[in-house]
Design a protein around this nucleic acid. Sequence first.
DNA 1: ACTTGTGAAATCGTTCACAGCG
DNA 2: CGCTGTGAACGATTTCACAAGT
Lengths: 217, 217
Amino acid sequence: MKTQGPLRRRLPPETLSRLPAYRKQLRILDDEGQEVVSSKDLAFRLHISDAQLRRDLSYMALLGRRGLGYEVHGLLEATSSALGLDRHWGVAVVGGGSLGTAIARYRGFVSSNMEVLAIFDVDARKVGKKIGKLPVLDLAELPARARELGIDIAVLTVPAEAAQAAADVIVRAGITGMINFSPTFVQVPPEVRVRSVDITSEFQQLTHQMEHRALPL
Amino acid sequence: MKTQGPLRRRLPPETLSRLPAYRKQLRILDDEGQEVVSSKDLAFRLHISDAQLRRDLSYMALLGRRGLGYEVHGLLEATSSALGLDRHWGVAVVGGGSLGTAIARYRGFVSSNMEVLAIFDVDARKVGKKIGKLPVLDLAELPARARELGIDIAVLTVPAEAAQAAADVIVRAGITGMINFSPTFVQVPPEVRVRSVDITSEFQQLTHQMEHRALPL
DNA sequence: ACTTGTGAAATCGTTCACAGCG
DNA sequence: CGCTGTGAACGATTTCACAAGT
């Protein structure tokens, strides 16, 4: 057994942000029956440098074989595991508007071992209906039903004004992971992980880039 | 006139990514009638350090007054201008699925001076219908109609398999800005700015964080 | 006194480049 | 010989801390 590199307590956030792309590309190679891949080849497909790929993998103590490369299937399993995808995750969509509906209908979750199980809303006109095959339930029911339904993650898609109140219900339900699409900070206890996706911000960064047209990215 | 700080050619990407939040908070302060704000106060509301805020502003040569702070309205105008929001932007949604519909229906664009003008799809069953007040047009029409409609930005919400072909049409239409929601790289000429939003990646990063439960973020 | 603007230091992330193993 | 794994160099970003302006 060798001394095995940096081996940090935590993955650098930049490395984490690249992991899903690594996994996606490895799935493609695995499906193609490719058994081994070099950092140069995989990095090329990902539009990053081979040194960066090797550094990222070394943070997770994922080792290849010198002179050969990395074993595709093993690396796929390892990255999946690092992302926590070797278990099933139940998702609840909170907010039955058009964005909530879009997330609920999205079929790309299965390949991440995630499944949307229900939609929660406060609007009595929506409660009791179905969106696709999914029931729309009263948000007030979430704390009582989260465990029974097997919900691990909530997706906040309510208007900004309603976001904090909805987040409070999610926290009371004992759910410890949240994707927040509302353009607001939500305050949660420290054991709850929140990731925010601000679509408006992306548009504004784009318009900045379009106005400042120097050709290189 | 004084010598005015770093004054880079380009804004650091990390600074750019914070600008939309700065602007949002400044709008709130402006609406509240607050005339001046210190970096300490504004930074506190943004959950960042006052040094970082001042550094970011200095990159844009936005100066405050020592002992006093920054003039709220002036700073709001300056950040809006830096983001390119002092002009109107026409947006086309490409892909009339549930995500495209959600973007088309989103009412938060007005405050960024952006407006969704039309939805483009290849599906003959959708073309000719309306989503809200917006017409669904044939994607093949995009190059012919982009100028007339005043479209500056396209939002790609088509399935991964269709993304590159749709991007090619967008480029042929002379549109130079794109938000890509498809989980794929799209290849475009260098004058076209693309920002990608990968929702699946956010979920996977969240599950990683949930599995690696050390309390701090 | 209060607060900015910014050098300098510290921290974080990426790339270089090569020793070392297969 | 090819390719990994990783120190060391480099570059980017954040924080410190304080001189200077009001």
